[in-house]
């Protein structure tokens, strides 16, 4: 249980590019390994497997998903950084590889990898139990100002983005809440359900079951725009709290890849993102479109690293 990694198994599925018309220049290798630090069935794993089956025919490549767990992603990073620079190995990235690099300073960190493309944003949402008196962020802020240190907000692991969001929320709104950390997203839901915490921060995919049963409500999202499927939920910015979280999902590779490999990815991923069937799938998963090409993804990472470093320094975590 708890913070342990689950183990690592090469669970592989292949996407055969049968009958795909190679619309673009041929990719230099026929089999590409997509590495994830997530265990089979975990969030990034499911996401990569879907990409493998969708992107395979488009790029005319066999994708194999491999789970390399352990060390908070340090193992997976080391494996990708040491891979041949021919476009045969990539890493399915989430912010955690950067957070791990900054916090534990492994031998191979984020700076030895090169972001290829970003694809999605995981919207961070604020949710409450359905019978909660809170209707919007202002209710929470008022309550927290009236009685400092009484409103409990549940967030997932200590170095997660939702924890950082909560700390920044307090700074922006000049309130004092209790930020209760957990061992994972599931425990956060449990704390909100049993009333330990008044509000929770989390991702839509995790609470889908509770939302379907009307046991929980989403009252705000930390996104630029409203989340598809939650069109009546205003963003935090709309509610007067200027806070946007870019929890990205993308593909990262070894440094110095040939330009044609990067171009092949950029073109292939754009085509995949435009596929209506794929769009339906990812919106159901509760993620938002967030395509960024190679240069933009690099710039976004620099920005992300800077904000993380600032946060860790501000709170003396190192």
């Amino acid at each position: 249980m708890k913070r342990k990694s689950i183990g690592a198994i090469v669970g592989a599925i292949t996407a055969l590019g049968i009958g795909a018309v190679p619309a673009m220049a041929e990719y230099p290798v026929s089999t590409v390994r997509l590495i994830t630090h997530s265990s089979p069935g975990g969030g990034t794993d499911v996401f990569l497997r879907k990409i493998a089956t969708t992107l395979g025919p488009i790029m005319d490549v066999n994708f194999v998903v491999e789970n390399v767990t352990g060390g908070g992603g340090a193992k997976a990073m080391a494996e990708v950084a040491a891979a041949p620079k021919d476009g045969s190995v990539f890493y399915g990235s989430t912010p955690s590889y950067i957070i791990t690099s900054l916090l534990s300073k492994p031998e191979v960190g984020y700076d030895q990898l090169d972001p290829i493309v970003n694809m999605f944003y995981d919207p961070q949402t604020v949710f409450v139990k359905s019978d909660s008196p809170y209707q919007n962020l202002q209710d929470i802020i008022e309550d927290a100002q009236a009685s400092p240190g009484a409103v409990v907000a549940a967030v997932s692991t200590p170095s997660s983005l939702d924890r950082q969001v909560m700390e920044e929320f307090q700074a922006i709104t000049d309130t004092q809440l209790v930020t209760l950390t957990h061992d994972g997203g599931g425990d956060v839901l449990m704390s909100v359900l049993n009333g330990t915490a008044a509000v929770g921060i989390g991702e839509i995919a995790e609470m889908r079951g509770q939302l379907d049963a009307d046991a929980m409500r989403v009252i705000a999202t930390y996104t630029e725009e409203r989340v598809p499927g939650f069109d009546d939920v205003p963003t935090a910015q709309e509610q007067g709290v200027d806070l946007v979280v870019a929890k990205f999902r993308g593909i990262v590779g070894p440094k110095d890849l040939p330009p044609e490999v990067i171009t092949a990815w950029e073109e292939g991923v754009q085509e995949m993102m435009a596929d209506p069937e794929f769009k339906e799938w990812y919106e159901q998963e509760g993620v938002q479109y967030g395509y960024l090409g190679h240069d933009d993804a690099n710039a976004a990472r620099e920005e992300f690293v800077a904000s993380q470093t600032e946060f860790f320094e501000k709170f003396d975590i190192n």
């Binding site: 913070r3 990694s5 060390g71 908070g72 193992k75 791990t100 975590i317 190192n318």
Partner: peptide, 16 residues
């Protein structure tokens, strides 16, 4: 807090 404890810079120890 998320601060590493007794890990001696070893990523394998981060998860305990």
């Amino acid at each position: 807090s998320g601060a590493p404890r007794f890990t001696f810079g070893e990523p394998d120890l981060l998860g305990g």
